[in-house]
Design a protein around this nucleic acid. Structure first.
Length: 287
DNA sequence: ACCTCGACCTGCAAGC
DNA sequence: TGCTTGCAGGTCGAGG
């Protein structure tokens, strides 16, 4: 369940039970996620206290008292489940393992945090805080779309000269980091821009933003804010860490709505395939 | 340096 | 019912 709003929702769910708590016991039931877990994963984590839980693009980062940072990615199907004796959370005598429960954190406050990932495209990695800037997964990431520095000037500069489609450009984590297939479709719809439009056309020939770039940045920020407010999107009944469902999927205007009529136009929503992935858009109002 | 494509995995829904 | 096919919110490395 993982684009930026879902990952941010997970972060907010995990922070109250993980921040300030210590990894008392760590179970790595399967080490073959997207990349194999390092051999010292369990020993290096055990005993460490989480000093802060952050997010960079679609990555969760747990700052540890040991000087390490735990970097986690949910891939396509990863999720966390919180159980245990935590005030304000569901109480269970003990955590019951389910299929695809790969990693279990037993925290010092009684919380049991379980990482489940059927497809195993998710990953976990431990790196020394000092080496974080060299981390290949994080190094190439573009700006955070909700950050103040992300604006039309920045996006236009990144898209200037790009012959690829706007859809592909926005999915490129080096241009802006955190959007995925759903929110790119939704942002383009809100900005009235065709996903097939050449990316360079949001900039003039000097790389300066035009009105399309301004509309697109506004649309990206708005859709992400709206989705976070709704607790993200819950496709296929995916749950948030506290067991609740996000409900932004009910607010999709085009995603997965092929054949339906456009919410504020006369058109019909169409599905096309761009670089191997479904794009949903309204040919009538997205130009 | 670009860009597209296949690969990585499992599960589910639709079609025959 | 059971099989096959295609599709799924992501990334990465190979190849053109």
């Amino acid at each position: 369940m993982p684009e930026l709003p879902e990952v941010e929702t997970v972060r907010r769910g995990l922070a109250p039970v993980m921040e300030g708590a210590r990894f008392e016991r760590v179970e790595a039931r399967r080490g073959d996620l997207r990349w194999p877990l390092p051999k010292d994963f369990v020993t290096r984590l055990t005993g460490a206290t989480v000093t802060g839980l952050g997010r960079r693009a679609k990555y969760l980062t747990a700052d540890l008292s040991t000087g390490d940072v735990l970097i986690m990615h949910l891939g396509m199907s990863g999720s966390f489940r919180i159980e245990g004796e935590i005030p304000g959370c569901f109480h269970h005598d003990r955590s019951k393992l389910a299929a695809h429960d790969h990693i279990v954190f037993h925290m010092s406050n009684g919380a049991v945090v379980t990482f489940n990932d059927p497809r195993r495209f998710g990953s976990m990695k431990l790196v020394a805080r000092a080496d974080l800037d060299d981390e290949p997964q994080l190094k190439g990431l573009g700006p955070e779309p909700l950050g103040n520095e992300f604006d039309a000037t920045l996006l236009a500069a990144a898209c200037a000269g790009k012959k690829t489609s706007l859809k592909a450009a926005l999915l490129d984590q080096r241009i802006v980091a955190g959007l995925g297939n759903i929110y790119v479709c939704e942002a383009l719809y809100r900005a009235h821009l065709s996903p097939k439009r050449q990316a360079s056309t949001i900039a003039d020939r000097h790389g300066k933003p035009n009105e399309r770039a301004v509309a697109l940045v506004d649309a990206i920020k708005a859709v992400l804010h709206d989705a976070i407010k709704a607790g993200g999107s819950s496709l296929r009944d995916h749950r948030q860490a506290d067991g609740s469902l996000g409900y932004f999927q009910h607010s999709f205007r085009v995603y997965d709505r092929e054949g339906e009529s456009c919410p504020d136009g006369k058109g019909t929503i169409k599905r096309i395939v761009q670089s191997g992935r479904s794009t949903f858009y309204c040919p009538n109002c997205q130009k």
